[in-house]
Write a protein that binds this DNA or RNA. Sequence first.
RNA 1: GGCGCAUUCGUCUAGUGGCCUAGGACACCGCCCUCUCAAGGCGGAGAUCAGGGGUUCGAAUCCCCUAUGCGCUACCA
Length: 490
Amino acid sequence: MTDRPVRTRYAPSPTGNPHVGNIRSALFSWAFARARGGQFVLRIEDTDRNRYVEGAVEAIMESLRWLGIDWDEGPDIGGPHGPYFQSERLPRYREAAELLMERGRAYRCFCTPERLDALRASQAAAKQPPGYDGLCLRIDPAESAARAKDEPHVIRFAMEREGVTVLHDVVRGEVVFENALQDDFVMLKSDGFPTYHLAVVVDDTAMAISHCIRGDEWISSAPKHIQLYEALGWEQPAWAHLPLILGPDHKKLSKRSGDTALLDYRERGYLPEAMLNFLAFLGWSLDDHTTIISAEELTRHFDLARVVPNPAVFDIERLNYLNGHYIRAMDEERWVRLVAEWADRGLPASIPRPLDEAVVRAAAPLLRERVTLLEEIPGLIAFLFTYDAPEYETALLAERVGDAATAVRVLDEALVRLDAIGESEWTTAAVEAALRGLEEPLGMKLRKFIPVLYVAVMGRPTGIPLFDSAAILGRERTLARLRAARARLG
RNA sequence: GGCGCAUUCGUCUAGUGGCCUAGGACACCGCCCUCUCAAGGCGGAGAUCAGGGGUUCGAAUCCCCUAUGCGCUACCA
């Protein structure tokens, strides 16, 4: 079962933007294949024409690429087991269905959706377990074939009803299912498309998938797949059902329990390595202390044996921490590029483009320790790109020092000292020296009065370091802002 | 309702009979550092291992029962 070469796959349906839970499954499948020197396949399960969403395939590939998950075979690059769209593999499913009919393990069902609905309703009313009642199973094969010519029908799999079906799961061990409780599920729909159950078995076999790694929501249908493998006489892959990822409400992560599309996180300024690191430890661990891991290390050490069985809550705080960590860890050039990109994207249109590269470059190192999400960048440096300080409440000037009179003294003294610095000597060090010199005459610590100047210069009492900011702004703009603040106080 | 899975600090987890008076990380609190805010350093609080029975010299680790949570129960995946 596991002595085959390792081949795993990620097989999403193109029904929208992939969610983080889904991508986590892709990540584990990929990491496992890479760790074992195997292959990773991307297959698109587009068997439900009603739920197909335009652009979803592109979004799936974009999501994987963003995290650096690469595939060896797939819809875009082809491969020896193509095609990789299930909608293009219809004959294979029909072939399998027919083989099963010949073997007496499948039958046509002519029941209408209405009858099925009514059946379910009456079963529910009678507190009976829902399931097909086998009406069409009793139709004579000859009659069935005749009716099939012009009557819409599906093909159902005849589940074994005696005994039990045992799932040997890599993460959960042995799971036993009572066959008497099973249902003759539809495997080929009336439109000729297969349902997931048939398609996954046919394709995983055709594509030589060695490990079926998927979310835990699939575990209840595992007996369907196992019986299909047995009826077809094919070798099962090793099974691994991954724990679900829960939202803050402790329910399976979905649209209603918060935003979950992977790419949304990119838009908000999360780094791919932070997301990958975060996802890697949702349901898996390397050892008793590692919390930071790179894609390279993950693909070297990942092992299904260390996947835990219990569901994990998606903790955004942890993701935020990791994002900050990777921002601080990246090399200087990349950081400058990111600052430029996000500033350009988020700064008001009133600021002329292209943005002053020297300012961006000077501000970048000041931003590094203060940014958690890239989207915070514009707000922190907008004041560097305008002549005047951003709008602010005048009262803010005096807030930290207690009273307006003190704020006035601070501004007056600062103006005198700063004004004494010549245009050519205007540097961070000079500004710092001048302002530190204020402690004496003002009779208070720098930390006590400096918030006044922060507000005057950047419109807020907090932000990137003031001395550097003043240096970047230049003598004229800095003095103008201090004078403007002084004027506000009368 | 039925079936299935799960249950260690608020959260992610370590732990496979003695190394556990349960370790790490995020978040939280305090101190230090400090031009604000952060970042960083140091320290703290936080889990009677869901509850109850067993087995054993000894259990978070093995067995049984209960509770709770979640998942599935479609011609969706």
